[in-house]
Design a protein around this nucleic acid. Sequence first.
DNA 1: AATGAATGAGCATTCATTCAT
DNA 2: GATGAATGAATGCTCATTCAT
Lengths: 190, 190, 190, 190
Amino acid sequence: MKDRIKEQSIIFFEKKGFSETSIQDIVEALNVTKGTFYYYYSSKEQLLMEIHKEYIDDLLQRQQKIIDSGESQNAKLKGIIHLLISDIARNGDSGKVFFREMRHLADENATEIKKRREQFRLNIEEVIREGAKKGEFKQRLQPDITALAVLGMTNWTYQWFNTAGELTADELAEQYSSIILDGINMRNGG
Amino acid sequence: MKDRIKEQSIIFFEKKGFSETSIQDIVEALNVTKGTFYYYYSSKEQLLMEIHKEYIDDLLQRQQKIIDSGESQNAKLKGIIHLLISDIARNGDSGKVFFREMRHLADENATEIKKRREQFRLNIEEVIREGAKKGEFKQRLQPDITALAVLGMTNWTYQWFNTAGELTADELAEQYSSIILDGINMRNGG
Amino acid sequence: MKDRIKEQSIIFFEKKGFSETSIQDIVEALNVTKGTFYYYYSSKEQLLMEIHKEYIDDLLQRQQKIIDSGESQNAKLKGIIHLLISDIARNGDSGKVFFREMRHLADENATEIKKRREQFRLNIEEVIREGAKKGEFKQRLQPDITALAVLGMTNWTYQWFNTAGELTADELAEQYSSIILDGINMRNGG
Amino acid sequence: MKDRIKEQSIIFFEKKGFSETSIQDIVEALNVTKGTFYYYYSSKEQLLMEIHKEYIDDLLQRQQKIIDSGESQNAKLKGIIHLLISDIARNGDSGKVFFREMRHLADENATEIKKRREQFRLNIEEVIREGAKKGEFKQRLQPDITALAVLGMTNWTYQWFNTAGELTADELAEQYSSIILDGINMRNGG
DNA sequence: AATGAATGAGCATTCATTCAT
DNA sequence: GATGAATGAATGCTCATTCAT
């Protein structure tokens, strides 16, 4: 039941937004009563928090695997881009809730989630920094800025990407990696 | 007074979110009464709509100037990236409201704003398409995907960029343009 | 202008009801502003009062003519029935407002109007009483009850009578007079 | 509680009118909170609708019993007059609300209630029509007009009848029946 | 484990009225 | 005669949360 509530909530939060979704909406869709909700979650915010934690923890864990893989920094970066895009594609609703509704976490919770999001970002930064040191990436670009560029490009896909279209997540990840790594200029290898 | 209300609203919408900002919040900050608000705006949503229209119309107009400039497609793309970033930097709050709160527009209004946002995107796509045709950009990349990559990277800055930091909007635009155009790979001109 | 406001108000009051009609509705329909309304009327209630006074005074005056006519009580009663029905038919909206919205007059005003409505009723009662004394009407019936029966029957027409139908006000008054005077029983002259 | 709310509402609606009665008024009188009201009724209008339905359904049901009684049409008509008047006398407030506030039902609800009121009227019409056919009533009078005369006369009593006076509902019904059946003219049996 | 009744604070919106110009 | 800006109080309604059962 706890999971059913979470799943139903994610659907509503994605469709209508956190503030616009009432507990009533959620429990009605599950044919239970408000009391049931509060038996499993102490507040609406706690539910949101669990959704966030689940999402970011899963992401961090899979990112770590890539980082520990021992591949080239090029390959690692491609891997992370693929991870993010395929995740948005797969868990569409969770992802949208994750990117849109963090504002509704109370201070303490927000801080906790922010720390992990930060960690995810710093991990990307580290891959880039390492790549620059090893001569794979340009040394002229700032690693923090570059990491934010990668994150922006990929995270933004939650705004428009939908699995029903012709483009697969793999193809999109491929093109995005190409853009990030080699740019769009003709002179860089056509 | 109408403008004062709009300005104050933008500040609140950015800080607390549209749904979380009450008319009471707005009018209290201006030391007027709710009646005054409704004298100038027929609803909370109409106010949001005006904020959106103002923002996107201004952006579209300045984008058009760049497109009509007769420069190379490379330069045009750089110009648009610079436009977006400097705008977010300058009108920070408006931008955040614009990117976050469109969901709260009612159907008809949402459609109108979406059309103009779409137009902005299609204009970028056209610059890229033209660049590919003229041999400036790679022909292998899909213009629509590439346009979305550019938009994602730049729009995402509203999430983190703040003018108080060391980095100027110009520098950021410069680095982002470099990434988009030449990538981060060492082999593309270091 | 004062009269235009009154006319327009009557239309709205009839259509939407007094409480549901805002000053805004009225002045908008006349393309003037609220200030104008308050230049001519000191309050919404005062306007309602004027409508009521005009209606009942006109009715009382015409009733008096019938009473002073020197005809038989039979003829007088028929005349009053005809007066009421033809008036509702002619001034439809005013009549409906008169019958429905008296409740919205403040105490003092309500008392004044009630007194005149009472007068109208007592005048009918007097015609009936006189008719009974002169042997025209049955002495067994209470004049006050009978007067209320006449008033009920006729006033109720404001609920359903409309001039667009086939029935004319004259025909209706004729049938109602017949019912009141001779009843519907076959044995009373078929 | 649901019934307590309804009862209290009827009292207020009668005294102040539907529009002039606020939910606040009702719940304050019951020493509960607004939330409680909305726990039992989804809107103010729904409450009004329930009051209307209860009233007309009860009336229709009792009317049907009279119609099915197998008595003379004369007796049936007298029965219906008695039914209406005694009902207004007994459920005074409900009746007043029923006659005054139908306007505040939304379209769909209004239509439903109108249909039932219409049915009540048509049933009276049918009694009269049948009476005319059987030679009890005059054939010269239109049954629909006559039915409206009966309804007007009786319904109007909600405007003035009060149980505290000397006149009982039975006596009033008796006199009204006499007027309708035999008229007030001396020549019809004094 | 779940329900159902109740709360209380808050919200968008409406509206009659005032008043300086 | 008429306007336009502003008020302030009220209104219907929503909703997260509590709690006895």
